[in-house]
Write a protein that binds this DNA or RNA. Sequence first.
RNA 1: GCGGGAGUGGCGGAAUGGCAGACGCGCGGGUCUUAGGAACCCGUGUCUUCGGACGUGGGGGUUCAAGUCCCCCCUCCCGCACCA
Length: 825
Amino acid sequence: MINDESRTETYDPNAIIDKWMKVWEELHVNEALGLVAGHDDLPRSYVVSMFPYPSGDLHMGHAEVYSISDAVARYIRMTGANVLNAIGWDSFGLPAENAALKRNLHPREWTYANIETQAESFRRLGVSFDWRTRFHTSDPEYYRWNQWLFLRLFEAGLAYRKEAAVNWCPTDQTVLANEQVVAGACERCGTTVIQRPLTQWFFKTTDYAQRLLDDMKQLEGKWPHEVLAMQRNWIGRSAGAHIDFAVEGRGEPVRVFTTRPDTLFGATFFVVAVDAPLADELCADPQRGAFEAYRRQAATATEIERLATDRAKTGVNLGRFAINPVNGVRIPIFAADYVLADYGTGAIMAVPAHDQRDLDFARALGVPVQVVINTGEADPAETWVATHGDGRLVNSGDFDGMTTAEASAAITARLAELGAGTEAVTYRLRDWLLSRQRFWGTPIPIVHCEDCGLVPVPEAELPVRLPESGYELRPEGGKSPLESATEWVSVACPRCGGPARRDTDTMDTFVDSSWYFLRYPNPDYVEGPFDPAGVARWCPVDEYIGGREHATGHLMYARFITKALHDLGLVSFVEPFTKLTNQGQVIMNGKAMSKSLGNLVNLQEQIGLYGPDAVRVTMVFAGPPEDDIDWADVSPTGAVKWLARVWRISAELDGKSSGEPDIELRRAVHRMIADATTAMDDRRLNVAIARLMELTNLLRKAVDSGAGPANPATREGVEALVRMLSCFAPFTAEESWQRLGHGPSVSSAGWPQADPGLLVEDSVVCILQVNGKVRDRIDVAPGISDDELEQVAMNSGKLREHIGDSQILKVIVRAPKLVNVVLAG
RNA sequence: GCGGGAGUGGCGGAAUGGCAGACGCGCGGGUCUUAGGAACCCGUGUCUUCGGACGUGGGGGUUCAAGUCCCCCCUCCCGCACCA
């Protein structure tokens, strides 16, 4: 399809790959000028695309991500900046364990073999990485610093342990990662997964909730609006009041959080999360049996049941009473699973008249309903529809007649006087659970000593390396894999020297990716996790590029860690990524490509057929970077045709230019350069390519039937085209550049500058409208005045024809582009 | 339920409030060819009495002028989801 046996030379994109890969490496064209110092006169730009997980060879999704990020990096570089376009690997993670089990290898072998494959594929795709940044998070030299960071957070009180539920497969007797749970069932054996409590490590992200929210102001307009919205949602700030309810027979009152203090008089019962320790404590003896049974039932609730949002309300009366602080009314206390133990205080005042969940519960368990806000709607006790809206207070003592807003303030103030409440803010954001009962991750650098408790591994002993042998990847009985490495586990306590055990959990791989971009400038640095000089030079990241699926995971964690590092005095900034660009996924027939769906398109096969440049161009031209690409909608054949066209035009210009440059052609060329530049600046890469295609068409005509191949304007246009093309199709551009008689490399040739003088046209087309409808087009001078233009326009025969003898109400003139004559009637 | 986004030709998609459909795919026609699944050129929203009329999910509005701004509605996609 690409080759033919015609006499002229043909475009064979795959024949030029090795040649240019070698040249680029020899000339170091893709390397930043100085990683930690030097060339300070140049503006710098740090471009990072979310680093890959080495799951196998690169696939179509990678091709999209890196085609986009590389086009951006190359563009910035061509405009004269010193660009660091970094690459590394996110190489810890579960798939390596699965592969190791299957092949009976160490996870490392599979992982690093894949990394080599991907690295070679990146080179063959022509991605302009600075390979000196390369590291892998599974290198002990890297994860050592994860451990170091963990210890700093531990010292700062930001890492702590508490009990939390893990996914547990009763058949396999093992803990499961979230991604191993498919529709509530174990991925391997299909057994229904249950939740099981386990003591685990957390980072205190909640301490940073307000700052994570506030600092989003810095990102406004630079991050996709959508991602910021998701994060705002995820943090879930909610303002209201804390209210303390005395409990009969208990010294300490019990605190609740509510966003509706105005409904306090409507609280007819009190609910404690069934799985909160408080529920157990408050349970009266006669209710013990019923409570224990209910708690057991709730604990064995499966993932599937838990996810059902419309299930009936259940609960048990604990046989105790709380006292409403404003009116002294006794209300019964229930334990229920619709109240969450880890949100707010794990207990609520229930106001069934004005909260649908409480109303559903009241209906199910026969608790009375008391209306305290008159919203003008029907009685909730009859309709079983709670009234959420604003209104005036009733049945609320002194507060009757107040509006919702007035009452909220007044009741909160009363509570403050009584010493029974204050204004309060709660967040939906939870602390970051970072323990993983997995092998292929960073060991947590803590030693458990019977006498000394939790003892940090001394810094000099880092890294705590993963064991080479003596472990099982899937031990029986729900142990962590590291727990099965008995020799590795057993260690002397760093503090007292007595017998102790290593912590056997590994860290969530999101820890690895929460600071990796700080290490790129000097990946071999040994004095600390990152080189302060390199970080000062490049960070924060100027252009961060990656998928939207990381909106509330990775991006939130990286923001948190950056702030924590800032507070530790290790970095000067509080936000890691100045600008964020999302890119879409490659899908096929409406679904993300995946092996199980059998809709995989093989990247290497596509490259083999069309060449790396055509695949790259296809990815970028398919649509806006953030949109998904349905592979069924696009075809690299179009890209191949275009690239071959450019290549051919370049080859046809092998002679010396002569004669006067064609001024009209120059104007057109510079118009295209200007338009392409604007599109690139706005990151509308697909539009930029459209302009390059137009320029190509223009030059084709110039060669065939216009100025001709020898005209200097033709050469100027072709050279500009090839330079701009190099952002998207580096191999073809390089080859064409050489054919134009230049030495390597086109990527050092710079982005063409549009000459402003050539952008001013001799004449422009002005549209003439009558009542907003186009009736004529005339050529006018670009500098024409409004008055002059109106006169000229009125001379148009077509315009007069459409005006007829109607009365002219007014004439809108927008020189030099438009005249609109508005008629009466 | 809450939050966010999107509806434009046969398709992917362009359009600082000022000529809707750039560019590409597909399709049709032509040139050159032993041949064309190559290259190059032309055409391609709908209707049309060939003057033009209509046309950006639907309905209203603002404006001299609306795909674009405002209000209501419909459909689809994404995120969160018993968050008090």
